[in-house]
Amino acid sequence: MKNTYVKFLISFLALASTPFILSLFHLNLLSEILILAIFALSLNVLVGFTGLVSLGHAAFFGVGAYTAALVAQHFSANLLATLGIAAFVSLLFAAIIGAFCMKVNGFYFLMLTLAFSQMIYSFIHQSTNLTGGSNGLSGIPKPEIGAFSFANPVLVFYLVLVIFMISYAVLRITVKSPYGQVLIGIRENETRVKSMGYNTSLYKYSAFIIAGVFGGVAGTLYTYFNGFIAPSDVYWTMSGTVLIMVLVGGSGTMLGPVLGSALIVILETIVSSYTSLWMLILGAVLIAFVVFFPKGMVGIGQSLYRRFTNKPSVVNEKKSRAA
């Protein structure tokens, strides 16, 4: 257990020192990775731990982002106000959408989440007066606490980093708790968990809400980071991208979504300087991972680690899951 705290502290310090090393361009890239990592981690609660594959997670990202933007523009740019209200509105949406989505399973769950996210997308896209329609919202004031404003990218980075570390910790504690173990049980065999006396629909519902809230938080950070939000960030390709991040990184692990987000963001930056065929590359990466490395980057890491140390696999799995 102590080991985990040490690792957590080291990675926090390492990330916190990056503004002194990296150029502004790379720092912004890192901010984006961390924001999307929160988003991917939130989806991972559903996909990786509970076994519910959602293709509509961008809905919560969009709800969080737009709520934060609207609150900042019309009421107050206070950090606590925008983040708090955005998280609360995401929670409301997740509670409503989740109530419907819990009624179905498997592919139908996938399609229903897709349907709801498209409903939210079309609402955002159409209501020009409120959300700016296809132009999106721009000129969103930067968040502030009292007189202190997160006016430059380095400050925004630290804000993102702190919220990322908190989200990671909260989600990790949740997943490791007895509650999280029940979720994993549902993923493995829902009927069995149900017959053991657990109210599985309540567990799934709450997992959906947790995922929605953290998705909303990620969206809020995205608004802080960009100062701009467009309907394309709510479109189902966004849900697809974040799902790809989770799967490529390694679903059902804590480190996987973070690695996946880093890989996809870095790859996109590199690829788009050479060619416009980014979706082709992304699709090919997804296909390659699904066919050859179904356990994602974390799985590749584990098998390499195993090869070099020749230890039995069970121990490794425990270790890397704890990381």
Partner: peptide, 19 residues
Amino acid sequence: LGHLSQVLLTFGLAYVFHD
């Protein structure tokens, strides 16, 4: 690999075909 993985394969394929 199971149905879910195959759905994801076709999803990747849709991206590839798009470009």
